[in-house]
Amino acid sequence: MEKLIVSPSPHVRSGMTTQKIMLNVIIALCPAVIASGIIFGLRALFLILVCAATSLVWETLFNMITKKPNTIGDLSAVVTGILLAFNLPPTLPFWMAAIGTFVAIVIVKCLFGGLGQNFANPAIVGRIVLALSFTGAMTNWTLPQAFQITDAVTSATPLATQNEDYLDLFLGMTGGCLGETCALALILGGIYLVIRRIISPATPLFFLLTVGLFSFIVGADPLYQILSGGVLLGAIFMATDYVTTPITFWGKVIFGIGCGIITCVIRFYASMAEGVSFSILIMNILTPYIDMITKAKPVGALKSKNRRD
């Protein structure tokens, strides 16, 4: 008989792994991937593929150069790639997309120590960097394929024009980033993630409720504000990223409300048409402070005499 293994308890582990969590997120993103293919055509799918593939390449290269074990097996790079693609207009040149994934994976994630160590959502920062660097290409919205008779026609995002009806918004038959338009697909993915207990519904619900309430108070159409732009994509898939958002329930509530308020403030009072990415980025930065004030309460703990936080 071989020697017995001696290890500390527990001696059994749950079947849930980081890889499975990421796989579930990828599954939840699938309806929106399919919707983008239907709405914007094959090129949208290619763009998603390019983003996912280049993300894997960047992470592999980074690990090779820094002589670290390759970590692409956890699939988080694929999630980042797809999410970044969802934030891009379908016409964006592939090389620009590759720059976006480089920023997301290498600069935002890997340089901070890899998975779990980044303070900001990689896909959001990737999108913001692209939007500031290639403003023209990043706002080159095409109308959905369903409406196209001849060549792609550029148009404005509905947030800038505000003349779509609810059903079009719900099904995604509008211009916009390739993954953000189809509310139906995004909500389906969100429900899947909640059922599989991958995300807490707290963040998206409080995000959306806050946007609705804020819009109502200032006299804007709440449903329109929720369905248009990147609110649903942000609330369901970006504001629920484990790494860059608060860890406890009440922290998630605060995070959701904060995102909602900042989104509306930017939409209604700033010069930009869209504020979801910046709202999530700002709340990402506030996350350590939110964590600090929403710590779990140990059961039966006596007040500790010592100091500082």
């Binding site: 792994t17 969590i21 120590g113 860890i247 779990a296 309460k297 059961v299």
Partner: peptide, 21 residues
């Protein structure tokens, strides 16, 4: 088991009977 970095999912906090983090 493949060990990865902590992804801050919070499952341990929701599991702890003593309410620890």
């Amino acid at each position: 088991e493949v060990q990865t970095n902590c992804i801050r999912c919070g499952r341990c906090i929701n599991a702890c009977p003593a309410g620890l983090m």
